[in-house]
Protein backbone atom coordinates (compact mmCIF):
# COMPACT_ATOMS: atom_id res chain seq x y z
CA UNK A 1 0.00 0.00 0.00
CA UNK A 2 3.02 2.33 0.28
CA UNK A 3 3.69 4.86 -2.44
CA UNK A 4 7.01 3.83 -3.97
CA UNK A 5 7.50 7.07 -5.94
CA UNK A 6 7.64 9.05 -2.74
CA UNK A 7 10.20 6.79 -1.13
CA UNK A 8 12.33 9.71 0.05
CA UNK A 9 9.48 11.99 1.03
CA UNK A 10 7.04 10.11 3.21
CA UNK A 11 4.13 12.36 4.08
CA UNK A 12 1.60 11.93 6.86
CA UNK A 13 -1.52 13.86 5.88
CA UNK A 14 -3.92 14.88 8.64
CA UNK A 15 -7.43 16.10 7.77
CA UNK A 16 -10.18 17.43 10.04
CA UNK A 17 -12.80 18.13 7.34
CA UNK A 18 -15.06 21.17 7.10
CA UNK A 19 -15.31 21.98 10.81
CA UNK A 20 -12.62 22.03 13.47
CA UNK A 21 -10.98 19.28 15.49
CA UNK A 22 -8.26 20.91 17.58
CA UNK A 23 -7.89 17.85 19.82
CA UNK A 24 -6.68 15.89 16.79
CA UNK A 25 -4.28 18.63 15.67
CA UNK A 26 -2.86 18.89 19.20
CA UNK A 27 -2.47 15.11 19.36
CA UNK A 28 -0.55 14.78 16.08
CA UNK A 29 1.94 17.53 16.93
CA UNK A 30 2.62 16.24 20.43
CA UNK A 31 6.26 15.23 20.88
CA UNK A 32 5.71 11.50 21.40
CA UNK A 33 3.47 11.20 18.32
CA UNK A 34 6.00 13.09 16.18
CA UNK A 35 8.81 10.88 17.53
CA UNK A 36 6.83 7.75 16.69
CA UNK A 37 6.17 9.01 13.13
CA UNK A 38 9.90 9.70 12.66
CA UNK A 39 10.75 6.27 14.02
CA UNK A 40 8.43 4.75 11.43
CA UNK A 41 10.27 6.57 8.65
CA UNK A 42 7.84 9.38 7.89
CA UNK A 43 9.47 12.68 6.96
CA UNK A 44 6.62 15.19 6.58
CA UNK A 45 3.52 16.04 8.61
CA UNK A 46 0.93 18.07 6.67
CA UNK A 47 -2.18 19.17 8.56
CA UNK A 48 -5.49 20.40 7.15
CA UNK A 49 -6.82 22.13 10.29
CA UNK A 50 -10.16 23.60 9.09
CA UNK A 51 -11.73 26.18 11.36
CA UNK A 52 -9.57 25.21 14.33
CA UNK A 53 -8.05 27.87 16.54
CA UNK A 54 -5.02 25.85 17.58
CA UNK A 55 -2.15 26.66 15.21
CA UNK A 56 0.72 24.15 15.39
CA UNK A 57 4.31 25.31 15.09
CA UNK A 58 5.67 24.97 11.58
CA UNK A 59 9.00 23.17 11.30
CA UNK A 60 11.47 23.12 8.42
CA UNK A 61 12.85 19.77 9.42
CA UNK A 62 16.45 20.74 10.12
CA UNK A 63 18.70 18.11 11.77
CA UNK A 64 16.46 15.22 10.78
CA UNK A 65 13.32 16.25 12.59
CA UNK A 66 9.84 15.92 11.13
CA UNK A 67 8.79 18.66 8.67
CA UNK A 68 5.55 20.17 9.98
CA UNK A 69 3.24 22.31 7.85
CA UNK A 70 -0.46 23.17 7.92
CA UNK A 71 -3.26 24.91 6.00
CA UNK A 72 -6.93 25.58 6.73
CA UNK A 73 -8.85 24.44 3.65
CA UNK A 74 -8.03 23.18 0.17
CA UNK A 75 -10.11 22.29 -2.84
CA UNK A 76 -7.74 19.47 -3.69
CA UNK A 77 -7.83 17.24 -0.61
CA UNK A 78 -7.70 14.23 -2.96
CA UNK A 79 -4.27 15.35 -4.26
CA UNK A 80 -2.95 15.60 -0.70
CA UNK A 81 -4.26 12.12 0.08
CA UNK A 82 -2.72 10.78 -3.13
CA UNK A 83 0.74 12.06 -2.24
CA UNK A 84 0.56 10.83 1.35
CA UNK A 85 1.99 7.59 2.74
CA UNK A 86 -0.34 7.63 5.74
CA UNK A 87 -3.60 9.50 6.32
CA UNK A 88 -4.91 10.45 9.74
CA UNK A 89 -8.50 11.62 9.38
CA UNK A 90 -11.61 12.69 11.26
CA UNK A 91 -14.51 10.23 11.06
CA UNK A 92 -16.45 11.86 8.19
CA UNK A 93 -17.56 9.33 5.59
CA UNK A 94 -16.32 11.55 2.73
CA UNK A 95 -12.68 11.57 3.91
CA UNK A 96 -12.80 7.92 4.92
CA UNK A 97 -13.95 6.60 1.55
CA UNK A 98 -11.79 9.01 -0.43
CA UNK A 99 -8.73 7.66 1.40
CA UNK A 100 -9.77 4.01 1.17
CA UNK A 101 -10.50 4.29 -2.56
CA UNK A 102 -6.99 5.68 -3.11
CA UNK A 103 -5.64 2.68 -1.23
CA UNK A 104 -3.84 4.67 1.45
CA UNK A 105 -3.29 3.41 5.01
CA UNK A 106 -5.75 5.23 7.25
CA UNK A 107 -6.14 6.02 10.93
CA UNK A 108 -9.55 7.47 11.80
CA UNK A 109 -9.69 9.61 14.93
CA UNK A 110 -13.15 10.07 16.41
CA UNK A 111 -14.15 13.48 17.73
CA UNK A 112 -15.50 12.82 21.21
CA UNK A 113 -16.84 16.38 21.52
CA UNK A 114 -19.53 15.86 18.91
CA UNK A 115 -22.97 15.35 20.40
CA UNK A 116 -24.56 12.95 17.93
CA UNK A 117 -21.57 10.76 17.33
CA UNK A 118 -23.00 8.11 15.04
CA UNK A 119 -19.91 8.55 12.86
CA UNK A 120 -17.80 6.33 15.07
CA UNK A 121 -20.12 3.46 14.01
CA UNK A 122 -18.74 3.65 10.48
CA UNK A 123 -15.09 3.74 11.59
CA UNK A 124 -15.71 0.86 13.99
CA UNK A 125 -17.41 -1.27 11.32
CA UNK A 126 -14.62 -0.63 8.82
CA UNK A 127 -11.98 -1.44 11.45
CA UNK A 128 -13.70 -4.78 12.06
CA UNK A 129 -13.15 -5.51 8.38
CA UNK A 130 -9.50 -4.41 8.79
CA UNK A 131 -9.71 -1.54 6.29
CA UNK A 132 -8.42 1.06 8.76
CA UNK A 133 -7.40 1.79 12.33
CA UNK A 134 -9.80 3.61 14.58
CA UNK A 135 -8.82 5.58 17.66
CA UNK A 136 -9.41 8.69 19.80
CA UNK A 137 -7.14 11.75 20.16
CA UNK A 138 -5.62 10.62 23.48
CA UNK A 139 -4.96 7.06 22.26
CA UNK A 140 -3.48 8.07 18.89
CA UNK A 141 0.07 7.45 20.12
CA UNK A 142 -0.78 3.94 21.29
CA UNK A 143 -2.41 3.14 17.94
CA UNK A 144 0.65 4.39 16.08
CA UNK A 145 3.03 2.24 18.11
CA UNK A 146 0.89 -0.88 17.77
CA UNK A 147 -0.29 -0.60 14.18
CA UNK A 148 0.85 -3.00 11.47
CA UNK A 149 0.03 -1.45 8.13
CA UNK A 150 0.76 -4.70 6.29
CA UNK A 151 -2.22 -6.34 7.97
CA UNK A 152 -4.70 -3.81 6.56
CA UNK A 153 -7.02 -5.18 3.90
CA UNK A 154 -7.42 -3.12 0.75
CA UNK A 155 -10.94 -1.75 0.36
CA UNK A 156 -12.89 -2.72 -2.74
CA UNK A 157 -15.14 0.22 -3.62
CA UNK A 158 -18.84 -0.53 -3.97
CA UNK A 159 -21.31 1.10 -6.30
CA UNK A 160 -25.02 1.72 -6.77
CA UNK A 161 -25.68 -1.19 -9.17
CA UNK A 162 -27.71 -3.31 -6.69
CA UNK A 163 -29.89 -0.30 -5.80
CA UNK A 164 -30.36 0.61 -9.46
CA UNK A 165 -31.38 -2.96 -10.32
CA UNK A 166 -34.07 -3.04 -7.60
CA UNK A 167 -35.38 0.41 -8.58
CA UNK A 168 -35.54 -0.57 -12.27
CA UNK A 169 -37.37 -3.81 -11.49
CA UNK A 170 -39.77 -2.02 -9.16
CA UNK A 171 -40.71 0.43 -11.89
CA UNK A 172 -41.21 -2.41 -14.38
CA UNK A 173 -38.15 -1.87 -16.56
CA UNK A 174 -36.61 -4.96 -18.14
CA UNK A 175 -33.17 -6.04 -16.87
CA UNK A 176 -30.34 -4.95 -19.15
Amino acid sequence: MEDSENSKKRIVFVTVGTTSFDALVKAVVSEHVKDELLKRGYTHLLIQMGRGIFFPTKCEGADGSLVVDYFTFSSSIADHIRSASLVISHAGSGSIFETLKLGKPLIVVVNEDLMDNHQCELAEALEERKHLYYTRPHTLHQTLTKMELESLVRYTPGDGTPVARIIDRFLGFPDD
Binding site: T18, G92, S93, G94, F97, D159, G160, T161, V163, A164, I167, D168, L171, F173, D176
Partner: peptide, 19 residues
Protein backbone atom coordinates in the same frame (compact mmCIF):
# COMPACT_ATOMS: atom_id res chain seq x y z
CA UNK B 1 -24.45 17.71 2.15
CA UNK B 2 -20.93 16.26 1.77
CA UNK B 3 -21.06 12.49 2.17
CA UNK B 4 -24.79 12.26 1.36
CA UNK B 5 -24.31 13.97 -1.99
CA UNK B 6 -21.34 11.77 -2.88
CA UNK B 7 -23.44 8.65 -2.22
CA UNK B 8 -26.37 9.98 -4.24
CA UNK B 9 -24.16 10.80 -7.21
CA UNK B 10 -22.66 7.31 -6.96
CA UNK B 11 -26.20 5.91 -7.36
CA UNK B 12 -27.13 8.32 -10.16
CA UNK B 13 -24.04 7.38 -12.12
CA UNK B 14 -25.35 3.82 -12.55
CA UNK B 15 -29.02 4.66 -13.17
CA UNK B 16 -30.03 4.81 -16.84
CA UNK B 17 -30.54 8.48 -17.61
CA UNK B 18 -33.17 7.86 -20.31
CA UNK B 19 -35.38 6.12 -17.75
Amino acid sequence: SGGHTAEMLSLLSVLRKDR
